[in-house]
């Protein structure tokens, strides 16, 4: 079949499905459900095809055959272990036989957690604390007055946000009253910072989704122009 015709059919289907999704503005209806289910089905099917070809074939079976052909015992053992762990996952859906699959899940979760914790400490926590405490950087960037003010705002906001999550309020000790007032007042200020941050995130979410809508409208308009020969 002609490639141009396929592109035209594909574009037409895309425009129709886009209009089906837009029909949700009038309420839940059959056309919207049709587009929704079609999208989910196509996405799952496509992901399976990619995983089969790019993972099972390209990264496991082909290297295993090659390693066996070359007599590379280490690679064969490595691939067989990976194949075994992947096969054990197939037992997970069955309740009675799900025990062996726990080994694969344990490896996945253990490796993922170890990488996430180590990366978070060195890649996020330490650099962010360092950046929050470095006032000279604000001065260099924004000048003496505005830089110090920016650093002060960051300091107050960071500490206030942490104090907002300080739930234990002990009534013992000589400074208990002062501590409680500090937590309540400074923590309340930190709550304001949290609300401002949430408001900013909501705004950029709206901005992002509006961009998606503009892109879809632009796609529909371009398609109509092509059909009309514009």
């Amino acid at each position: 079949m002609d490639t141009g015709l396929l592109d035209t059919i594909g574009t037409a289907v895309a425009v129709i499905l886009t209009l089906f999704v837009f029909s949700y503005l009038l309420g839940d209806n059959l056309l919207y459900r049709l587009a929704e289910h079609l999208f989910v089905g196509v996405a799952v099917g496509y992901a399976f095809v990619v995983a089969f070809h790019s993972v099972l074939i390209a990264r496991l079976l082909d290297p295993l055959v090659q390693a066996v052909t070359e007599g590379n015992g280490g690679q064969v053992l490595l691939k067989l272990i990976a194949l075994l762990l992947g096969g054990l996952l197939l037992f997970k859906p069955a309740r009675r036989l799900s025990g062996p699959g726990n080994l694969s899940v344990a490896v996945l979760i253990g490796v993922g957690t170890a990488l996430a914790i180590g990366g978070a400490v060195l890649g996020t926590l330490v650099p962010q604390v360092d950046a929050s405490a470095d006032l000279t950087r604000y001065v260099d960037r924004y000048g003496p007055g505005l830089g110090l003010f920016s650093g002060f705002v960051v300091l107050v906001g960071t500490a206030g946000t942490l104090l907002h999550f300080y739930f234990h309020r002990s009534e013992e000790g000589r400074l208990a009253g002062l501590r409680q007032r500090l937590v309540s007042s400074w923590g309340g200020l930190g709550r304001c910072f949290i609300l401002i941050a949430f408001g900013a995130i909501l705004a950029v979410t709206f901005l992002s989704r509006l961009s998606l809508l503009v892109g879809r409208i632009e796609f529909v308009l371009d398609s109509v122009r092509q059909v009309l020969g514009g």
Partner: peptide
Amino acid sequence: SALVEPFARAYYQTGSQQ
């Protein structure tokens, strides 16, 4: 995406400019 912008900006403003 614009949705990730506040998150990415924090890494841009670190000392080592991640």
